[in-house]
């Protein structure tokens, strides 16, 4: 690396920083500024101090939306990260010939979420949906319900779709990580008489802890940003049971034109997501890489 006093490094940097500054950084600052105002997006802007934050703190719907997204994240950690880990473990037991399996499981990741959402809205449809029809075929009519219309199942139903999409994604990440576990370690454990399950639990999983931390970070911060599935499948319903911060934000800003209030909620959400991200990166840094060279 050469110390350089010319403008050259800046010339290489300017285009990227200009686009990033224009489309991300400046709007972040403006969103923060808007959060102290009452504004409908085009009329007069009124400075209101921290009123919007006080309102957000008292807003039951906003609080509920956080609860919902936390439940969603908790479920998706199980359905995406844990299931992904188990699937990767299964596949890594016998690597040969598993390609077709990984392809099948990974395919949903390729699809636009809107396509996934529309498709699964049909799966859950209570008139002709796949799920109710399957239950009927199996003689389990009692379990049939309006999956997306029932407050007790809607959030889970959406989470399951998310799991369907991303289990393959995390499986792929973990599979790549498992492949980096030195074979000698595994062979040695095998000679000591460890079964596949013990190998998985005691050797493989601990050795890819780093990849698991990253996956958790992705799952959690990604979960806070979820929107497509919720917007298309339930749009917050039934009775607000699937209202998450993002759908609530979009409603406040774009439907009811409360730009100031929406911005305050966006700031709160940003602080939470960035804060979690920083904590995770710190934790990851403190534990030096053990496996990946």
């Amino acid at each position: 690396m050469k110390p350089n006093r010319t403008v050259t490094p800046y010339l290489f940097l300017v285009p990227a920083m200009a686009v990033f500054g224009f489309a991300v950084l400046f709007p972040v600052i403006m969103t923060f500024a808007y959060s102290f105002t009452e504004w409908n997006g085009y009329g007069a802007m009124v400075f209101v101090g921290i009123d919007n934050y006080v309102k957000a703190a008292q807003d039951v719907l906003f609080r509920d939306s956080f609860v919902h997204v936390l439940i969603y994240i908790a479920i998706t950690i199980v359905l995406e990260v844990v299931v992904g880990l188990v699937l990767a473990g299964l596949v890594s037991v016998r690597r040969r010939g598993s390609l077709w399996f990984r392809v099948a499981i990974f395919t949903p990741v390729m699809l636009p979420m809107v396509v996934v959402a529309v498709l699964w809205a049909f799966v859950y449809n209570n008139d002709f949906g796949l799920l109710n029809a399957a239950l009927q075929t199996l003689g389990l009519e009692d379990l049939q319900r309006v999956w997306l219309g029932d407050t007790s199942t809607a959030l889970i139903a959406v989470s399951v779709v998310s799991g369907w999409v991303y289990a393959g994604f995390y499986m792929t990440i973990f599979y790549a990580a498992f492949n980096q576990v030195p074979t000698e370690v595994i062979e040695a454990a095998r000679l000591d008489g460890a079964g596949e399950w013990q190998l998985f639990r005691r050797i493989k999983v601990p050795m890819i802890r780093n990849a698991i931390t990253v996956a958790l970070l992705l799952c959690i911060t990604g979960g806070f940003q979820g929107f497509d599935l919720f917007y298309v499948m339930t749009n917050g319903g039934p009775y607000g049971a699937t209202e998450i911060p993002t759908t609530y934000l979009v409603k406040s800003v774009f439907t009811f034109q409360n730009v100031g209030y929406g911005s305050a909620m966006a700031v709160v959400l940003t602080v939470v997501v960035v804060g979690l991200g920083l904590i995770f990166t710190r934790v990851n840094r403190e534990k030096p890489e053990e496996v990946r060279s």
């Binding site: 449809n125 209570n126 008139d127 309006v146 999956w147 997306l148 219309g149 029932d150 809607a154 339930t234 319903g237 039934p238 009775y239």
Partner: peptide
């Protein structure tokens, strides 16, 4: 219909 708050107006009309 039991699905009243789960389906949109088009689907309601379809019933």
């Amino acid at each position: 219909n039991e699905s009243v708050n789960a389906v949109d107006d088009n689907e309601g009309a379809q019933l």
